[in-house]
Amino acid sequence: MDSTLVGQGGVVDDDVSVLGWGFIGAGSISDDVAAQAISEKVVDPVAVYARRHEQAAAFADRHGFRAVYSTIDELLADASVEAVYIALPHSLHVDATIRALRAGKHVLCEKPFALNAAEVRQGIAASNDRVVAEAFMIRHHPQWQWIEQRIEDGSLGAIRHVLWSMSLDFPEPVQPPTLPGQGSILLDVASYGVNIARMAFGSEPSSVSANTVDLPSGVDVRVSAQLQFGDGTAQIMVDARAPRISTVRIMGSNGYIDVLNPVHAGADGIARLSYRFGDSEASDIDFVRAPQYALQLKDFARCVALGERPAVDLTDALGNAECLDAIRLSASRNGQLVTV
């Protein structure tokens, strides 16, 4: 089996200006994004807001943000803030996005952009000429860009099947959720599989059949869904209560790609995939040091500067939300086939 090592030496500088960013939300994901983006010098850290002021102040100290605000509207009134990154609880995403858009800011919102398709449409209605993107950072990772290129150039042939299977071994929640969508494995993890399946097929599914396992609180902790794309299928299987493992395979009429580190690199910093096209021998590729959060923010700035479409814009976010809605509806009907 052949093996290739692909180095990723950081974010390459170009002529795109660094944006002044306001972070709305100061939790663990914001920590990861800020640390990487600031290290790679792709953001100007202007301001931060969190629902707990002391959390925002500590966040600002860690990452060098110049201002800490007690309300979202105060942050949005700061003229130095050109774009906002939103990483609040899922149910608060759309309200914060619309307020930011009305203030004239560009918006990068964590996935899921909204709880459902109806909320995404509210964001679309408010977007005007601002750049708005859903933060599926994996779409900016070199391994997924390599995969997209292989799909587009026909190396895989016609896509026949996508399998996204992940288990997370998440701990039991210490208290019931206080906000809609909080703790949902469908919104948190299965949404990745839906997005990748839609990218691979280059279309929206025609129908969905799904089942979920829910806690007494109503939070889903296991999802099994089959999506129909013409004569191809995608299977999305995610379990929050099983030992950690991931299996992602994209199969085409001319080969396959197995993705061994689909969301985050391994402990050694390497994201590895295996592939085989046509009659060639199976090969491996190791992608090393890929700062996908920084790459995401850099690409967002490029879209702002050049007026280009983000990799995951609101049209894409709407397609994902409609599919997640269909999964939820099918599960509520004991796996009944639902048209998307």
Rank of each mutant, 00 (worst) to 15 (best):
A35T: 02
A35P: 03
V12K: 15
I24P: 01
V42K: 14
L19G: 05
F23M: 13
S39A: 15
D32S: 14
V33S: 14
W21V: 05
I38A: 10
S17V: 08
A26G: 06
F23Q: 05
S30N: 04
W21I: 02
G25M: 07
G10T: 00
I38F: 11
V6D: 00
W21A: 02
Q36H: 09
K41L: 07
V11A: 03
S39F: 14
I29A: 01
L19N: 06
D13N: 11
S30L: 05
L19M: 12
S30H: 14
A34T: 01
L19Q: 09
S17G: 07
D15Y: 02
S28Y: 06
D13F: 05
A26N: 13
G7D: 03
K41M: 04
F23E: 05
G27N: 10
G9C: 03
V18Q: 02
V42N: 11
G7F: 09
S39C: 03
G9K: 01
V33F: 09
D15T: 11
D14V: 04
I38D: 11
V42F: 01
G9T: 00
G27F: 04
I24V: 11
G25T: 10
E40T: 01
I29W: 07
Q8N: 15
V33L: 15
V12G: 05
G10W: 02
I24N: 02
F23V: 04
G20D: 05
I29D: 00
K41W: 02
Q36A: 01
S28K: 14
W21L: 05
G22Y: 11
G20E: 12
V11N: 09
G10H: 06
V16N: 03
E40D: 10
Q36S: 12
W21Q: 02
S30W: 09
A37H: 13
D32Q: 15
E40I: 00
S39D: 15
G20L: 11
V16K: 00
A34I: 03
L19V: 05
G9L: 06
S39T: 08
S30Y: 07
G22F: 10
I38C: 05
G27K: 10
V42I: 09
L19F: 01
S39M: 14
S30C: 12
D15N: 11
V42M: 03
A26I: 08
D15W: 08
W21M: 07
D14W: 01
G9P: 00
A35K: 15
G22L: 05
F23S: 06
Q36E: 13
D13C: 04
A35Q: 15
V11K: 10
K41Q: 14
A26W: 10
V18I: 13
G27P: 08
D14L: 10
L19P: 03
W21F: 04
D13I: 08
D13P: 13
A37G: 04
V11Y: 07
G22C: 04
W21D: 00
D31H: 14
G20I: 04
V18S: 04
A34R: 14
Q36G: 00
L19S: 01
V33G: 13
G10P: 03
A37Q: 09
A35H: 13
V12F: 04
S39Q: 15
I38W: 13
F23C: 02
K41V: 00
A34P: 08
G10Y: 03
G10M: 05
Q8A: 09
V18H: 02
I24G: 01
G20A: 09
A37Y: 01
I38M: 11
I24H: 00
V42E: 12
V12Y: 04
